[in-house]
Design a protein around this nucleic acid. Sequence first.
DNA 1: CCAGATTGACAATTAAATTAAACACGGCAC
DNA 2: GTGCCGTGTTTAATTTAATTGTCAATCTGG
Lengths: 183, 183
Amino acid sequence: MDIGQRLKQIRTERGLSQRELATRAGLTNGTISLIETDKTSPSVASLKSLLDAIPISMAEFFGAIEEQDIPKFIYRADEFIQLTQDGPGQVSLRQLGNARKHTLQVLHETYPAGADTGPEFLAHEGEEAGIITRGQIELTVGDTIGLLNCGDGYLFDSRLPHRFRNIGTEPCEIVSALTPPVF
Amino acid sequence: MDIGQRLKQIRTERGLSQRELATRAGLTNGTISLIETDKTSPSVASLKSLLDAIPISMAEFFGAIEEQDIPKFIYRADEFIQLTQDGPGQVSLRQLGNARKHTLQVLHETYPAGADTGPEFLAHEGEEAGIITRGQIELTVGDTIGLLNCGDGYLFDSRLPHRFRNIGTEPCEIVSALTPPVF
DNA sequence: CCAGATTGACAATTAAATTAAACACGGCAC
DNA sequence: GTGCCGTGTTTAATTTAATTGTCAATCTGG
């Protein structure tokens, strides 16, 4: 989402210079330059001042951005959404993209040594699958128990009760997929 | 426009605590507390992180705010939009509200000593009127010239060529109205 | 009732946005 | 050419936002 490009677009569309818009909005030209070149992320208050001076509403401004938004295919590691509280000894679930817009939910899971999804078994609609990318983990599905090593994978109907336990000494990382998404 | 209230609304609607939303968005609970109590104006980047984690789009977020926006009646002095470059010896035009939404445009004008709208006369559609609140100014409309003192006013058809000159020694302030708005 | 956990708010530090002033580039008159 | 605007960018200093750690208040289960 390129705030800078969009601001520059509507500013130049209306024939305003950075300096002119700046004085109208009560900011400085330098600030607008930094925003338009994406060297800073303006505060909502600053952006509102700018849009009021143009004038254009926040909804219009972002509406146009999000319409023109090219469907996003690539997500950087730091763009994942953390679904769990993080802390030592905690299971970490990091979601790829905004699953509500899709029928497929992919997670990057980390189970510290000793971690356990709990004795109360999980069960929900859909299917899930994954591949272990680091360490090893014990998976119980129904009354089947298996120890999965790095490179191994799993695939099962999520309605079957299941449980993950890292019984090893190093953290276990899994890339998993669920459909439909669960929250 | 109350960002804090709106954020709290949708957050609690979805049963999220400040801490839970914070970890999902990669921010801290303190930040959310400050935003929701309007003690800070978040950066666009921070707000986007929060809305992605909820999830809700920027356009939806602001759309709802601006719809529910009570028509605004009162404008603080620092909310006026500066229509002119400011500087010593410059005429200052400060607009009340967003004139594009209305048929009436009210300006707070300041003419420094010696200021002049220029020998090339102004002319545009509509009517304009004003009252001098400080100092004095010479007004030319068509071939009529008058010296207006503090408390005096004017009202004329804007299609007549007109010119303002502060021929006094102190700045002149005028509150003026135009209809329809001009830019 | 108490212990432990969860909530939102606060104060002090750290990180980031904003300012103010300078810089560099490109027209354009002279 | 030189000087002068007007443009957008960059830099160091300042102001503001964000983090961190803590607090009191509110639940919850034993």
